[in-house]
Simulated scan of single mutants.
Amino acid sequence: MSEVLESRIEATGPETTVRVPAHRIDLDWACPASETFRKIPRAPFEAVRMEYDRALQANNQLVDYPYVGESVDLYRRRLATALMPHAVTYPAMKLEKINGKLFRDIEQTVLKEAIEKPARDGRLVEIKLKDRSGRAYSEYEGSMGCWLNQFKGPVMASPILVPGGARRSPPMA
């Protein structure tokens, strides 16, 4: 198990559930046989991936492995750039040259709006996760009305008792 997951388990205690992405980084890089990448720590990239996992799954985006020689900051900026089309506040732009504090503000907004996109589109999407024992489970993001509306019945008016006699409630729209 990676250092990131072990630290999260230690921080939360044995009785709580730790959310683990269903498609976390199992290999060091895209090519497990490459000796170039074996010396580079995987934990910082895995932490970035865990942060972006829910937004990427909600928008049906695949998570890329880090590129050769890519830093953690550039990996974070590349994933944020991939989510830019799903945000409404900022137009799609390149984030490589934006300074740190401004980038963090843009990144938080883009992540929040990317997770909200299924609700804006009236969809309900499945987010696959694993608990600490490795069992897969699903959570859902988006509009619950897209599948619950089929179970709703017609709006019915009922009599209301008011001092002075029974009256019908006004029709509901």
Results as ranks from 00 to 15, higher is better:
Ile106Trp: 04
Ala173Arg: 13
Glu96Gly: 04
Val68Met: 11
Val20Leu: 08
Leu161Pro: 01
Gly153Met: 07
Val4Trp: 02
Glu46Asn: 08
Glu46Leu: 13
Lys97Asn: 12
Asp28Met: 09
Ala58Val: 05
Glu51Asn: 08
Arg49Gln: 09
Phe45Lys: 03
Leu27Thr: 13
Ala87Lys: 00
Glu116Thr: 05
Val68Ser: 10
Val48Ser: 00
Pro44Leu: 07
Ala92Lys: 12
Lys112Met: 07
Ala157Thr: 12
Arg167Met: 15
Lys130Ile: 03
Ala92Ile: 13
Ala30Gly: 13
Pro41Glu: 14
Glu126His: 04
Arg49Lys: 07
Arg54Met: 12
Pro171Asn: 05
Ser34Lys: 08
Lys101Pro: 03
Tyr137Leu: 05
Pro21Val: 04
Phe45Cys: 02
Trp147Thr: 14
Thr12Gly: 11
Leu74Asn: 10
Phe103Leu: 07
Glu6Asp: 10
Ile127Cys: 03
Ile127Gln: 02
Asp26Met: 08
Leu5Ser: 01
Tyr137Gly: 08
Ala22Glu: 08
Leu124Val: 05
Asp121Ile: 01
Ser34Trp: 08
Thr81Met: 15
Gln150Lys: 14
Phe37Arg: 04
Thr17Cys: 05
Ser138Gln: 06
Ser34Gly: 04
Phe151Met: 10
Glu70Ser: 10
Asn60Ala: 14
Leu148Ser: 15
Leu111Ile: 11
Ala80Cys: 15
Glu51Ser: 10
Val125Lys: 06
